[in-house]
Design a protein around this nucleic acid. Structure first.
Length: 558
RNA sequence: GACCCUGUAGCACAACGGAUAGUGCAGUAGCCUUCUAAGCUAUUGAUAAUGGUUCGAUUCCAUUCGGGGUCACCA
């Protein structure tokens, strides 16, 4: 609705001879004080165009804006600003008839995120990728984009050789515990340390890698079994996080094709040999070199990524392909896409990056053993959530507590990953992750639960409000906030930044809490009660749209 | 050394080049016989530095200083 009003205003200005470049400079914002209005326009660009002082331009502007859209109720000029008050009934209508703006009507985009390594730890760095990726998928879909979310398992390579080497050397014949994937991942850490202490082991690991690449029956069997453990672990994590992919690619299935493509690139003179390896040389563009095949003849991740790109377009009818990883791989993907384009790829390829997750003491490192695993974080937050919930509901069954605590845990974990801009490094702080107060998912979930509780008491009362109902300022502010949801989604999708939605949800929840303190919903007056029920029901629905975009579970009672 | 990101209160984050730089945590002072106090209300406290562009700069540009990352065989 707000978008429509702005469009109508621009149309009216255009009809009055204001050229588009001036309109593009026009800034529509919220007035600093809600009492001034719902929408503000600064007159500065128009003053320059009309050759007059800004306050004078504001008056002229106000005259043109008046009547440009029937949702406009009142216009006041404050110095160089035009403040517009909208019809409350129009705001309520917009808030209760939410329809996401379809802003991205482009064809199918493959959206690759969550690229875990089998035989290795799944830590909170992977978690950010998963949460950020899933939120973007939801957001782009809400904005009308056709998204095909896929994941890619790095299930072959040096890391696998390391882990399996350690497995045979130090743990042969041991009985795996229940959580096999996690147990296996521990061996990667062990291998890294052992290799550091004793460089002689390097040759042994290389032998394992060669044996694996040659599909040596014994090693292959072990690889297949252990790979299954990791994949089971990933499935369990995805189930907890509620991630759904249309397709899963595996490096092991495409690596051979990658080698063929490297041969092809070499044959056609696009790639070249250097120091025994096959590389793409981008030194002239100041973009370094990309190793397509190692000097020992083995492939690396690049080898497979060539084939992965081909496989994506072969299997799916796509307009473009997008990969989400942390920003350390930005140069790599630039090089990879340059290589693919040189190879003949015409399709649009894009890399979307976000900042790292680090710890207060610095970067996470398997070698140093200062990695926070997803599972241990989950367990810790869950224990805290159970304690908090039990404390508040002594009468609840353990089962009920557990169910709520799980939803709290997933919400809290996901929210810490998307609450700030993707450009910000997340310095992971455990105390913060365990906090359920303020700008956190539990606060949002709590708001939904509180509203539920009202309806439990309200029984059969039907929410409704006449167009002429006299809303208080706090109520009107809530309605206005709700009416902004489509704009928030549009901005978040355009900026590839789910944190806009996170902040919006928080603002809405805060506005509700503030309202809740000072207004009785279940008022004795039937008209007031019905109207406020409509307000809180709409608030709940709107909040749930936001929670869903961020992948946060709804809790009906907490 | 080159390139990319970043610098806002004790900490974590907001602010499409526009009105008095907002919020959370922590701190301080209040609020539970009334729809859930995981809450509300009030309050202390900040744009790294210096120039420039502009009617107007936290935002854009330059330089300096700080933090993070990448730059050939790990993914």
């Amino acid at each position: 609705m707000i978008t429509a009003v702005i469009a109508a205003i621009k149309q009216a200005l255009l009809a009055q001879g204001v050229p588009e470049p001036i309109l593009d400079k026009a800034v529509f914002s919220e007035p600093p004080n809600p009492a001034l209005g719902d929408l503000a326009v600064a007159a500065f660009p128009f003053a320059a165009f009309w050759f007059c002082a800004p306050p004078e331009a504001a008056h002229k502007l106000a005259e043109i804006i008046r009547g440009s859209h029937n949702a406009i109720f009142e216009i006041t000029v404050t110095g160089p600003y035009v403040n517009i008050k909208l019809q409350t009934a129009a705001i309520v209508h917009a808030a209760t008839h939410f329809k996401p703006e379809k802003i991205r009507p482009r064809p199918a985009i493959m959206f690759e995120y969550s690229q875990p390594n089998t035989h290795k730890e799944y830590h909170i760095g992977h978690l950010r990728n998963a949460c950020f990726g899933a939120a973007l998928v939801a957001l782009w879909r809400a904005a009308g984009q056709n998204i095909i979310p896929v994941t890619y398992n790095n299930d072959v390579g040096a890391h696998v050789a390391k882990t399996l080497w350690a497995y045979k050397k130090f743990h042969a014949g041991e009985k795996p515990p229940t959580e096999k994937g996690r147990w296996l991942a521990g061996m990667y850490v062990e291998a890294t340390r052992a290799l550091e202490e004793n460089p002689d082991y390097k040759e042994e690991v290389s032998d394992v890698l060669r044996a694996l690449e040659a599909h040596d029956p014994e090693w292959y069997k072990l690889w297949k079994e252990t790979r299954g453990w990791s994949l089971d672990q990933f499935h369990a994590i995805y189930k907890k996080l509620d991630l759904k992919f249309k397709h899963t690619f595996n490096e092991s299935a495409i690596k051979e094709r990658g080698h063929a493509m490297v041969d092809d690139l070499l044959r056609r003179g696009i790639a070249k040999k250097s120091q025994g390896a096959i590389i793409m040389d981008f030194e002239e563009q100041n973009k370094g070199v990309l190793i397509l095949r190692k000097s020992d003849g083995a492939g690396n991740y690049t080898t497979s990524d060539l084939a992965l790109a081909e496989e994506k377009f072969r299997r799916f009818k796509l307009d473009s392909s997008l990969v989400v990883t942390d920003k350390r791989q930005s140069l790599y993907f630039e090089q990879l896409f340059m290589t693919l384009h040189a190879y003949g790829f015409k399709q649009h390829l894009k890399h979307l990056d976000y900042e790292l997750v680090t710890l207060p003491e610095g970067a996470m490192s398997s070698r140093k053993g200062n990695v926070i695993l997803f599972e241990s974080l989950y367990e810790e937050v869950l224990a805290h959530a159970i304690a908090e919930t039990t404390q508040r509901h002594a009468d609840w069954s353990a089962k009920k507590v557990a169910k709520v605590a799980e939803a709290l845990t997933i919400g809290a974990i996901k929210f810490t990953m998307v609450r700030a801009s993707p450009l910000k490094v997340i310095v992971f702080d455990k105390t913060e992750a365990l906090s359920f107060d303020g700008y956190t998912a539990p606060y949002l979930q709590y708001t939904v639960a509180r509203i539920n509780s009202i309806f439990k008491k309200a029984k059969l009362t039907r929410p409704r409000a006449a167009a002429t109902f006299a809303w208080t300022d706090a109520e009107r502010a809530l309605w206005m906030l709700m009416a902004r949801l489509p704009d928030v989604i549009e901005r978040a999708a355009t900026d590839d930044d789910p944190s806009h939605v996170a902040r919006y949800c928080f603002e809405l929840a805060k506005a509700f809490s503030s309202f809740y303190e000072t207004h009785k919903v279940l008022d004795d007056d039937k008209t007031i009660r019905a109207a406020r029920l409509l307000l809180v029901k709409s608030t709940q629905k709107t909040l749930q749209v936001g929670l869903k975009l961020l992948g946060l579970p709804v809790i009906t009672e907490m």
